[in-house]
Amino acid sequence: MRKLMTTMLMAAVAIPSLAVPTVASAQSRELRRDRQDIRDERRDLNRAVRRGDRGDVRDAREDLREARREYREDFNDRRHRWRDNDWSSYRRYNPRLYARGNWRAPFRYTRFGVGARIAPAYYGSAYWIRDPWRFRLPVAGVGRRWIRHYNDVVLVDYRRGRVVRVIPAFYR
Rank of each mutant, 00 (worst) to 15 (best):
L4D: 11
T7C: 09
T7Y: 14
T7G: 07
M8R: 10
A11N: 14
A12T: 06
A12L: 11
A12C: 08
V13E: 15
A14D: 13
I15W: 01
P16F: 04
S17T: 08
S17K: 11
P21T: 12
S25M: 06
S28C: 02
R29F: 07
E30L: 07
D34R: 07
I38W: 06
I38S: 05
D40H: 10
D44T: 07
N46Q: 13
N46G: 10
A48Q: 01
V49H: 02
R50P: 00
R50K: 07
G52D: 02
G55W: 01
D56N: 00
V57S: 00
D59Q: 14
A60N: 04
E62W: 04
E62T: 10
D63G: 12
D63V: 03
L64P: 02
R65D: 12
R65Y: 10
E66P: 00
E66M: 07
E66L: 06
R68F: 01
R68K: 10
Y71D: 04
Y71Q: 06
R72Q: 10
R72I: 13
F75P: 02
D77H: 12
R78T: 14
R79Y: 12
H80K: 08
R81C: 05
W82H: 11
R83A: 13
R83L: 08
N85Y: 15
D86R: 11
W87F: 14
S88G: 01
R91H: 13
R91L: 07
R92S: 08
R96Q: 12
R96T: 10
A99M: 11
G101E: 09
N102P: 09
W103D: 05
R104A: 12
R104V: 11
A105M: 15
A105V: 15
P106M: 06
Y109W: 08
T110R: 15
T110P: 07
T110K: 15
R111P: 04
G113E: 14
G113M: 12
V114I: 15
Y122K: 13
Y123M: 06
G124N: 09
A126M: 06
Y127L: 05
Y127G: 02
Y127F: 12
I129D: 04
R130A: 14
R130T: 13
D131V: 03
D131F: 06
D131H: 09
W133L: 11
W133R: 14
R134K: 07
F135L: 09
F135C: 02
R136A: 04
R136D: 00
P138V: 01
V142P: 01
R144E: 07
R144Q: 09
W146S: 03
W146Q: 05
I147Q: 03
I147N: 02
I147C: 03
Y150N: 05
Y150V: 00
D152G: 02
V153A: 08
V153Q: 07
V154G: 00
V154F: 01
L155Q: 03
D157F: 00
Y158W: 10
R162W: 07
V164F: 00
V166I: 04
I167V: 10
P168I: 04
A169I: 01
Y171T: 00
